[in-house]
Write a protein that binds this DNA or RNA. Sequence first.
DNA 1: ATTAAATCACGAAAAAAATCACGATTAATT
DNA 2: AATTAATCGTGATTTTTTTCGTGATTTAAT
Lengths: 206, 206
Amino acid sequence: MSKNIPEKVSNRLTLYHSIMVEYIEAGIETISSPQIAQRLNIDDSQVRKDFKLLNNAGKCRVGYMVKDLKDSIEKTLGFAKTKDAFIVGSGHLGLALAKYDSFNSYGLNILALFDNDPQKIDIQVNNKQIFHISKLPNLVQRLGVEIAILTVPRQYAQQVADFLIESNIKYIWNFTPAVLKVPPSVKVWNENLMGSFLQFACKDIE
Amino acid sequence: MSKNIPEKVSNRLTLYHSIMVEYIEAGIETISSPQIAQRLNIDDSQVRKDFKLLNNAGKCRVGYMVKDLKDSIEKTLGFAKTKDAFIVGSGHLGLALAKYDSFNSYGLNILALFDNDPQKIDIQVNNKQIFHISKLPNLVQRLGVEIAILTVPRQYAQQVADFLIESNIKYIWNFTPAVLKVPPSVKVWNENLMGSFLQFACKDIE
DNA sequence: ATTAAATCACGAAAAAAATCACGATTAATT
DNA sequence: AATTAATCGTGATTTTTTTCGTGATTTAAT
């Protein structure tokens, strides 16, 4: 069922989504492709092409219904089906992500955090508990969690990843700079903060 | 001078870079395109094409010199030239980024943080001080900082961005979900955590 | 009504990116 | 020395993504 939406498109879709949220808050009910295009500095037919993927027809001379667009985007990107996840590594980044409520509105439900530092165990962060890493395998099984967000220091990344895989985690969202070695049954998404930004910042800073 | 390297390529380059760091630590001096390709689950000719952009020749039957590749990637992505930046918003994400030492090794030098909460002022984070936001315009001018990393809550994003622009900030790395309105002279990079991940996580979770 | 302006839909063209395929080269092996 | 196998380099091909152009539709204005 899930159409294969290219990465670039789904990136744009989340941006459109943010604009929709903003328009809804402002009480505006319709929006046109040139409006969006100008805002994001892209081509307006690009916007319409993207929207066509959503099966959400617009109306000439009026634009699209903001509410409908928002719903379609959510459905298409799968915000709707909630996915549970664990954060592994309760350092600053792990905590920041735990507090990042946007995840929730995007359908990613952080159930708990893990760490190996006894000092951090049992602390509550944004209503989520920090557990000792040794509790993870059991909880993965009991709660059927498939996604782990990895935010440990680089030098432990591979070893923790191995542990996650053993514990039956299927998707690793890797915030560490380590390039993980995993079996084909496990999928890794490398979050690459600097990568794209550097390019952006260096383009004209000389 | 700076060739315009597409985003996708520069993303891969940072991954290659991590692998180089790892190989250097392991004391391995050469690496081949199939090795890298297998590791990242991509095509090996893709790797070679990317390396061609670096003007870094490999040797048949041997591969590429790890050290040379690393240097070329750093030069090409601009790790070399250090860029100063301020973090605006000292919440969890701001603090996490301030502690994220990788930035430094990628040539991004965080000079200070800002917030409007009096409780946070003057705290030191990873040797960087938190200043009251009112001090920003002055410091921008005195230190010639052009880049701001925006990590305030969504509802303040636009208003803070306006303030940054007034203060002469030229590049905004936007970690908030808000889509900022800025004049053409200011460049915004929207960090889109969920965008690409959703695509990844939904592709086969049904 | 008629006209004008804005906007969508959509197919076609262009551009960009990824993949394939294969000859050339080189190190190791026989 | 000849053979083999791994690897690079790169042109050709395919796929994906973006942009362009045109006709249809709708609202607002005359």
